[in-house]
């Protein structure tokens, strides 16, 4: 705490050192260059793109204000379904991912089948495209003859997402578990704590905290992949945009959908990056 106060330039404002004056100059110059080049690029985009011969057509098909205004509220409503699917999938993914990670960490020989299962599981579900898993599980399992409501595409689509993303989360958690220094296990063991207590109270709380940024990135990807559930029926934002597209023969609804996704995913990604930088600073 005290260290920062001493280092902060504000504390020495009246008499800046030579280095501080020099660094302020460099900073001002690089900011001017960055602002200038950004402005130049933007200007080029704004001026040059409309000069392209097909611009009028593209504008009408992709950036149509009327279509945007007509479809945006419907898209926003459909996005609530994406948010809902995300909201109930995310905790399930975390729990299953945690179980798989613990399976893979199992050390006793009696638990070898668990470890093998964990390894196979992560290999398979990280190796198959999400959309295939959604198709196979979303149509395949209800096709076995389950009664309603247990054959709902919402249930089995969620299962497909959970199975796939849990494999990724499990790997992230496992890397977190392995990143905890073995001296922590030794300290817990020396106090007489058993393997499961050590995992639960000593290793996992640290490991989970350490991989929060990596998991946040996964969950940003999940929020986007929720749209894949539309392939098996649910009318979420991507499907709703597709309906508008075919009714109006216009791609603007897709642009609207993209904007809605960005409004959610950009802040989440920025936050994850911020956490990651913070952690990197804390460790150095």
């Amino acid at each position: 705490m005290t260290q920062t106060e001493i280092d902060s330039p504000d504390a020495k404002r009246p008499g800046l050192t030579r280095r501080q004056i020099y660094e302020a100059q460099v900073r001002r110059r690089s900011m001017a260059i960055a602002a200038g080049s950004t402005a130049a690029v933007l200007l080029a985009l704004v001026v040059l793109i409309p000069l392209a011969p097909g611009w009028e057509g593209v504008k009408k098909s992709f950036f149509n204000a009327d279509v945007f205004a007509r479809t945006f509220p419907g898209l926003l409503e459909a996005f609530l379904l994406d948010v809902a699917i995300f909201a109930w999938s995310a905790p399930l993914i975390f729990l299953l991912g945690l179980c798989i990670a613990l399976c893979r960490d199992a050390r006793s020989p009696a638990l070898y089948p668990l470890r093998l299962f964990g390894t196979l599981y992560t290999d398979i579900f990280r190796g198959v495209p999400v959309i295939l898993v959604i198709y196979l599980i979303g149509f395949g399992i209800p096709g076995l003859g389950l009664p309603r409501p247990w054959n709902s595409p919402y249930i089995w689509g969620t299962v497909a997402l959970v199975l796939t993303y849990a494999a990724y989360v499990a790997e992230v958690l496992r890397s977190g578990i392995e990143s905890i220094h073995h001296s922590q296990r030794a300290a817990a063991a020396s106090l007489g704590l058993g393997h499961s207590d050590t995992m639960r109270f000593v290793i996992l709380p640290q490991a989970i905290r350490r991989v929060v940024p990596a998991n946040m990135n996964l969950f940003v990807a999940l929020q986007k992949d929720v749209a894949l559930l539309s392939f098996i029926g649910p009318v979420e934002i991507f499907r709703q945009a597709g309906v508008y597209k075919s009714l109006l023969a216009n791609f603007t609804p897709y642009v609207g959908a993209a904007l809605i996704f960005l409004a959610v995913t950009v802040p989440a990604t920025r936050y994850a990056d911020y956490l990651m930088n913070k952690q990197a600073r804390a460790r150095s």
């Binding site: 817990a188 106090l191 007489g192 058993g194 109270f201 000593v202 709380p205 640290q206």
Partner: peptide
């Protein structure tokens, strides 16, 4: 485990649990 409960050890590098307060560290076991 029962042996370790009777023989305590303190390490050169402390090895405190960083996510717990001092009193939680002492109470866990």
């Amino acid at each position: 485990q029962p042996v370790r409960q009777r023989i305590g050890i303190v390490f050169q590098s402390f090895n405190l649990f960083p996510h717990m307060t001092a009193v939680e560290n002492a109470m866990l076991a």
